[in-house]
Amino acid sequence: MGYFRGFAVTFKKMFERRVTTSYPEQKRDKPARLHGRHVLNRYEDGMEKCIGCELCAGVCPANCIYVRGADNPPDDPVSPGERYGFVYEINYLRCIHCDLCVEACPTEAITESKLFEFSFTNRSDAVYTKDELVVDASTGRPQHLPWEDWRPGEDEHTSAWMRATSPSGDATYTGRVSWSGELGHGVRAPEVGQAGGAAASDDGPDDGPDDGEGPA
């Protein structure tokens, strides 16, 4: 009988639900504050939020951001301010997704989406230019590059980290909207991380191991 008692755990686990998430078919739910691939946002009228101030490049600990600002052309301005970023590049072979650029940005121009499933076969793909980072001019959704694995609905979560965090780190300001509207989304509600945020979000922080709907 000792032989079977040794297999007790094996037999017990055999009839439990599997924990495996079979990745290419389904993705595991992401936490609300996940740092993924960046996007450059637009205001609701389609203007770019980036003003080319290079604060993100200055704060970046990995020196992966390269920004050049230029004066807005008066007849066809790109951003509502005086200047705009006419070169914006992020090297994803350097970026460590620390989100310091999102904290440093004075206009919420750069935020991080929740996309983290991407890989490159050469180095030039890894340097995202401004055309690849900026959200689509008509829908306000991030662009889907061929080496990225976007799933339906994932491109809505482009600034969750910022909206889940108290402004300026002040905990007493929780639950207040202190950000501007985005193209395609409008002024968004706070995330569940804040007090007074959305009670039940579709991308809640429930990332338990039993979440995956693996094959039974």
Partner: peptide, 14 residues
């Protein structure tokens, strides 16, 4: 090349 610091398991699987 798998980006990320560190890449998550899904990034590595990608």
């Amino acid at each position: 090349y798998a980006p990320g610091c560190p890449p998550g398991p899904e990034t590595l699987m990608h």
